[in-house]
Simulated scan of single mutants.
Amino acid sequence: MSQSLLIASLWVLAGTIVALLPMRLQYGPGLTLLILAPPVIGFIGYQHGWLVAFGGVLALVSMFRRPLRHGIAKLRGQKPEAPK
Rank of each mutant, 00 (worst) to 15 (best):
S2H: 10
Q3F: 11
L6A: 15
L6G: 04
I7V: 15
I7K: 09
S9Q: 08
L10T: 04
L10A: 15
V12L: 15
V12A: 15
V12D: 09
A14S: 12
T16P: 00
T16I: 12
V18D: 08
L20T: 04
L21V: 05
P22G: 11
M23E: 05
L25A: 15
Q26S: 05
L31C: 11
T32E: 00
I35S: 09
I35G: 07
L36H: 01
L36C: 13
L36R: 01
P38E: 00
V40L: 15
G42V: 00
G42I: 02
G42D: 01
F43M: 14
Y46K: 09
Q47G: 04
Q47H: 08
Q47S: 14
G49R: 00
L51F: 12
V52Q: 01
A53T: 05
F54G: 12
G55I: 01
G55F: 03
G55V: 03
V57I: 15
V57H: 04
L58P: 03
L60Y: 14
L60N: 06
V61H: 05
S62A: 15
M63G: 08
M63H: 07
F64D: 02
F64R: 00
R65A: 15
R65K: 11
G71L: 14
A73Y: 02
L75N: 04
R76E: 11
G77I: 06
Q78G: 10
K79V: 13
P80I: 10
P80C: 15
A82N: 09
A82W: 04
P83M: 11
P83Q: 09
P83T: 11
